[in-house]
Nucleic acid binder design. Sequence first.
DNA 1: ACAAAATGTAACAGAATCGTAACACGTTTT
DNA 2: AAAACGTGTTACGATTCTGTTACATTTTGT
Lengths: 223, 223
Amino acid sequence: MKQRILVVDDEHDLCEILRFNLETAGYEVVVAYSAEEVQAHDVTRFQLILLDVMMPGISGFELARQLKSSERTAGIPIIFLTAKDTEEDTLHGFELGADDYVAKPFSLREVLARVKVVLGRSISHANEIRFHNLYMDVQSRRVTLNGQDVDLTKTEFSILHLLLTHQGHIFTRSELIEQVWPADVVVSERTVDVNLTRLRKKIGEYASCICNKTGFGYYFEGV
Amino acid sequence: MKQRILVVDDEHDLCEILRFNLETAGYEVVVAYSAEEVQAHDVTRFQLILLDVMMPGISGFELARQLKSSERTAGIPIIFLTAKDTEEDTLHGFELGADDYVAKPFSLREVLARVKVVLGRSISHANEIRFHNLYMDVQSRRVTLNGQDVDLTKTEFSILHLLLTHQGHIFTRSELIEQVWPADVVVSERTVDVNLTRLRKKIGEYASCICNKTGFGYYFEGV
DNA sequence: ACAAAATGTAACAGAATCGTAACACGTTTT
DNA sequence: AAAACGTGTTACGATTCTGTTACATTTTGT
């Protein structure tokens, strides 16, 4: 069964490019040119939504909020297409249950790679990340360890989210800084170490899953 | 190792300008003045093709179609150089697998920027190098041997990557130093030997694939 | 076969990297 | 206003990496 993707963007040309390439990659694609038009579709039939943030009328964020507030559609992964790439926007997006971000202008390869990751990794509850007894609810930004709440700071949450969604991938310090810290702040590379240490301390028995490979960087060692 | 770019354009002057600037930027450049001439080259040796759309004889679009239809060459990124910048052309190009567009007349800076983006991207995209049961994931910086993680240091990883991506090529010690060590560090040639020994020890049954030819240097013997 | 040159490798010490506690400073909560 | 919190920086000890050296072994040329 082909996986179905809903592309929502007011730029017709871009939609067609996305449609062609996603179809070539084996997905079934439906395009909507506005948030209003989305309401004409049965959204639950899609496994993924590519959603432009900036649209006339109802914005992408607003639409995402609506979708996530309904039980029926809350579980559908969303990838935002956005020109903005500030911290607030990213955080705001993740709060709304975004599974990923692609900043415009993007390369098709980039989009395809992310679509593949999102569709490959979780068919249903993409805003709930789980590793054994470690849960992350991306939407409510809560983390529990064996049922107990873990009180992570924003930075720690963001790091853990990145590592958990890319288990086994080794991130260099500068990659981590790029992904976790807003683009306009400058932090020293050693700051990463300190934050990783802090994170380790808070996740108890899973501390040892956050590994370092000398000279390379940090990664989450899934068992 | 230098990345190789094939420039295809019937305007000789333009080709020379591109050649000069791309070479200055550290790329290796080969020029073809027509689509027909391209067929004299082994296209698989290039990491990127800059392709003029409007050429006498076979057009750039037609050549792109041919390249994308062959398994061997389908994966090579193409940037179209085009005077036309209409919607249809752009769409048509993307359908043919273009990775980017530069409309003539273009600034060199623009071209260089796009080349950089595409090549930077395609490296991380072709990120899995494999030799029998020896895998290297360049992006996540991991190596596995028969499914087991191999713990390579940064230097060892870098050497293995170079050798595996150029199987059969004999590297002198000074070439290896040039490729693997940062330009500003000075190491003795014997240091290479020691690191090759260390690498051999870690890759088990493939140790014997790392060969030395007395008086010449080291190479990976693909079987 | 022999000596000379080139290569393999173990051991060591210096360099680089990493973990973490302590601190500083700004922000939020009480 | 004071206390608590978040977070970047620094410092220093612990760990890991890595270049060098010395000696063993192999290859080469005669």
